[in-house]
Design a protein around this nucleic acid. Sequence first.
DNA 1: GTCTATAGGCGGATAGAC
DNA 2: GTCTATCCGCCTATAGAC
Lengths: 243, 243
Amino acid sequence: MTEPTTPLRARDRARAEVMSELLAAARARLESEGSAALSLRAVARDLGMASSAVYRYVPSRDALLTLLIIEAYDAVGEVAEKVAADAHGADPAQTWLEVARAVRRWALDQPYSFELIYGTPVRGYRAPDDTVRSAVRLWGVIIGLLMAAARDGVLDPAGPDFDPAGRMAPEALAVAGFTDPTTVPDDVARIAIRSGTLFTSLVGAISVELFGHLHHVAGDYARFFDVTIATSAAGVGLRVSLD
Amino acid sequence: MTEPTTPLRARDRARAEVMSELLAAARARLESEGSAALSLRAVARDLGMASSAVYRYVPSRDALLTLLIIEAYDAVGEVAEKVAADAHGADPAQTWLEVARAVRRWALDQPYSFELIYGTPVRGYRAPDDTVRSAVRLWGVIIGLLMAAARDGVLDPAGPDFDPAGRMAPEALAVAGFTDPTTVPDDVARIAIRSGTLFTSLVGAISVELFGHLHHVAGDYARFFDVTIATSAAGVGLRVSLD
DNA sequence: GTCTATAGGCGGATAGAC
DNA sequence: GTCTATCCGCCTATAGAC
């Protein structure tokens, strides 16, 4: 009865190691070729394994895709959270610009990861709910910044209030930590609504650039991005100053 | 020498007819399955032709894709142009809301066509310059509305001017009809810049909805869209009123 | 757990007969 | 111009030996 669990542990460790190599190879494939070109066979080849062996670790191609999607959401979320945390106390409006810029940089660095989560959904793939937890991190940062701005009096209170009747947002409020929609203060509801515009302008501005729609329209992409972020922020009452 | 050209004409007509059937079949495939599933073989099957016969009409899969892309851009452009033209004289801000809503409706009706042009670019496909003429029609409508707003005094002149040095936009000005950047009035330059924000918010809002990013965040998608369009328009000095 | 082998499907594109 | 036949590649996934 000596070391009854050791062999199991060793086996688990070996398994975990292979699994992480497998994920690394899949990530590399994704980032160099895009999700459409990601196949279990290709990953197996890169690892020098037989394609059938991969099925001992990942039940299907979709499952592998799910893992990569979660990784990508977490990567964006982490980037955003880090910038927001490091800004500690700075003007929330300027912090939002920094967050947006950081997300853009991340997207330009690994365009296929951005595409994987914010581009056209992979055909035939249905995302399981496992992804939601990670996907929601960016929303959390945005809502946090808006709340900080409101607290600091930097969020234009006379700003647009396009949803007085509260016809949307219940689920958004859950992200902000309000589980019971009936107890949510009015200004928080407005904040939840505004977060949608910020999210959309961020994802939209990156998509538009990454997918080639500025080729014949804008010259300086970075500037275009800043202007878009700043103007849409102004629309929800957040004054971002450039330069 | 009677009717020397008739046989040729007849042949051309037959050819044109098959070609348009081919395009219709390809469009149907695209709209029911998405661009990733669009293959020459599938189109040939749907038409009851041998796959090899298709090559007499279209030199490659990419060429077929290009035709569909141009069709899609033209469809969006036409929708936008029609709404703008029918609004004849109405408040440009409200007209912009109507244009945006019409484009959203078009996108929801044929999501795969929207994806084809504004989603992740098809892997391995390089768009030839033939597409630009059609792609730019939507930009033309946006710039036209902004100019009308400026003319009518409805465009907030005190609005944001984030690009005093004119560091971007030369190509955007070409779309607006100004071929020589040095002769462009300041306010027109500002308009070109603002058009980017409107374009981005439109494409962004539709993408975000269509690609499933509102599932756990917003309840009423149509309302979310309106709010996003209105707030970002407010950011560039265009006051859209909802309800 | 890993391998080989295989089933069964898809696709792009070309050759050569009619 | 259309066909059949074919080449060659890709893929997911499973069976069965070791």
